[in-house]
C-alpha cells in the first residue's frame, strides 16, 4: 500500500509539470487534495495508525488535523504526532506543519470481547502548497478493518 502511494506520488509530480500552450500554464495548476495528501490507515485493535504521504512542496497544518471515530462503542484517544516543522504565518503566528511521510498514532478502546469489524473514521485536515495555494478544511470518511479482540485470559486458580 505504502509502495503504491510512493509511485503514484512520483507520477503525479511528473504530470503536474507538463507544459501547456494555453493561457493557463502548468505551473498554475494544482492536483486535487486527494492526490496531494495521501494516506493509509490501519489498526491492530489497540492503536489506530494513519500513515500520511504528502506530495513534495505541500504541507499539512497540525492544528487543523484530527481523527475521530463515528462507530458506536469505539473510542479514539488523543492523537500522537511526530515533531513537525515550524511555519511562520503573519496572521496566525507560528504553526506546526508536516511534510512528506509521517505517521499519527491514536489509542483505540472498545469492548473487551469485540469481534472483527469495521471502524468508521473521520480524518480532518487542511494544507497548502509552497507555490501559493491552500486547500479548504476538509473531512474524509475512512473505513478501517479492526481485528477481533483476543478473548480475555483467565489465570488458573492457585
Amino acid at each position: 500500500m505504502l509502495l503504491l502511494m510512493k509511485y503514484s506520488r512520483a507520477i503525479a509530480a511528473l504530470v503536474a509539470v507538463v507544459p501547456l500552450s494555453d493561457s493557463v500554464s502548468a505551473k498554475d495548476e494544482f492536483p486535487p487534495a486527494s492526490e496531494v495528501f495521501r494516506y493509509a490507515v490501519e489498526s491492530d485493535g489497540a492503536t489506530l495508525t494513519v500513515y500520511w504521504d504528502v506530495l513534495p512542496g505541500y504541507y499539512l497544518y497540525k492544528e487543523r488535523m484530527g481523527v475521530a471515530s463515528t462507530t458506536p462503542g469505539v473510542k479514539l484517544g488523543k492523537p500522537c504526532y511526530p515533531k513537525g516543522e515550524t511555519h511562520h504565518d503573519e496572521y496566525f503566528g507560528n504553526q506546526e506543519i508536516f511534510r512528506d511521510d509521517f505517521k499519527v498514532t491514536v489509542p483505540l478502546s472498545r469492548p473487551a470481547a469485540a469481534r472483527e469489524g469495521k471502524l468508521d473514521v473521520k480524518l480532518s485536515l487542511q494544507g497548502c502548497a509552497d507555490a501559493g495555494l491552500c486547500y479548504p478544511p476538509t473531512v474524509w470518511n475512512v473505513k478501517v478493518k479492526l481485528p477481533a479482540n483476543a478473548a480475555p485470559t483467565v489465570s488458573p486458580a492457585s
Binding site: 487542511q126 497548502c128 501559493g132
Partner: peptide
C-alpha cells in the same frame, strides 16, 4: 479566505 496565507498575501 482568512485561513489561507497566500490569499492574504495577495
Amino acid at each position: 479566505a482568512t485561513w489561507c496565507e497566500p490569499c492574504r498575501r495577495e
